[in-house]
């Protein structure tokens, strides 16, 4: 289909105007608002005690979530790709489930399970571990929303590489663990890394599920995303909200860059 020069230009303009109005201009405006007064105020704003502790908490949650997702995600992927799993279809659907659940519903579900009066509500009374309104709740919420990433990136790679090398290793007398460390893990490493990057990005950026299960005290239980929200809503500190959001955006852009580079590696394996 050959469109005339005028039609081509019209379509191009329409598409670009939409993208510029929706994506480009808002981002330029927020950068301008953030850095308009220079780098100094920006740095001061993201170095307040509350901001530093929010960044630390976000990183701590990432540091707990990623290993959990790597270990259990890889086992789940191996089970789905290599073993005879009863009710495979159901298990596959359960793995994808977190993608379909609204973040707020994730939070409510966790409150129903772990909160006071919940199914596991007795845990808090007997052990004193505060799940909801504590760090464990925020970690569980983050694990819930990021659970599919590692499984979904590793499982296709396992299918693709097949089992020939693993079988050869076994024939030569390698134990199951040796085969995993020497053959399987090197083969899935880029897929796994990609899954981890997606997990990190989502864990840093998760807001709805975390705000439901966090007590939200500045300096104690505020993640970076909660800091943005509370600075805007509670403190009416619009500038502070812009700077914290810009910091998060910088982290997101780094992730996007990493994804693009990794994607090239992954597909040209």
């Amino acid at each position: 289909m050959r469109t005339s020069r005028r039609a081509t230009l019209a379509l191009r303009t329409l598409a670009l105007v939409y993208l510029v109005g929706l994506l480009a201009v808002p981002i330029v405006v927020i950068l301008w608002r953030t850095f308009g007064e220079g780098l100094g105020p920006f740095l001061a704003s993201v170095r307040t005690p509350a901001a530093v502790s929010a960044l630390n908490l976000s990183l701590l949650i990432v540091a707990i979530t990623v290993p959990l997702n790597v270990v259990f995600g890889v086992v789940t992927a191996i089970a789905l790709a290599r073993w005879r799993v009863p009710f495979r279809g159901v298990v596959q659907a359960v793995v994808d489930l977190p993608f379909a659940v609204s973040p707020i519903v994730v939070g409510v579900s966790l409150i129903m399970l772990w909160g006071v009066g919940g199914w596991f509500g007795g845990l808090e009374q007997s052990t004193g571990i505060k799940v909801i309104f504590g760090l464990p709740g925020m970690v569980i919420a983050t694990v819930f929303v990021t659970l599919p990433f590692v499984v979904r990136e590793v499982e296709p790679v396992l299918h693709e590489i097949g089992t020939e090398q693993e079988q050869a290793a076994a024939t030569l007398g390698a134990s199951g663990w040796q085969t995993f460390w020497r053959i399987t893990l090197p083969a899935i490493r880029w897929g796994l890394t990609y899954g981890v990057v997606l997990t990190v990005a989502r864990a840093l950026g998760e807001f709805g599920a975390v705000i439901m299960v966090s007590s939200g005290f500045p300096g104690v239980s505020q993640t970076l995303t909660l800091l943005v929200h509370s600075r805007y809503i509670d403190d009416h500190n619009t500038y502070g909200a812009y700077t914290a959001a810009t910091l998060l955006m910088g982290l997101a852009l780094l992730t996007l860059l990493g994804m693009t580079l990794l994607d090239r590696k992954r597909t040209h394996r």
């Binding site: 808002p26 405006v29 608002r33 950026g205 943005v228 959001a245 955006m249 997101a252």
Partner: peptide, 18 residues
Amino acid sequence: DLPFALPTIVASIVLLSL
């Protein structure tokens, strides 16, 4: 791809700024 990479609360703030 930016909207997928950007945290949702940042999307909110970004749009508010404009």
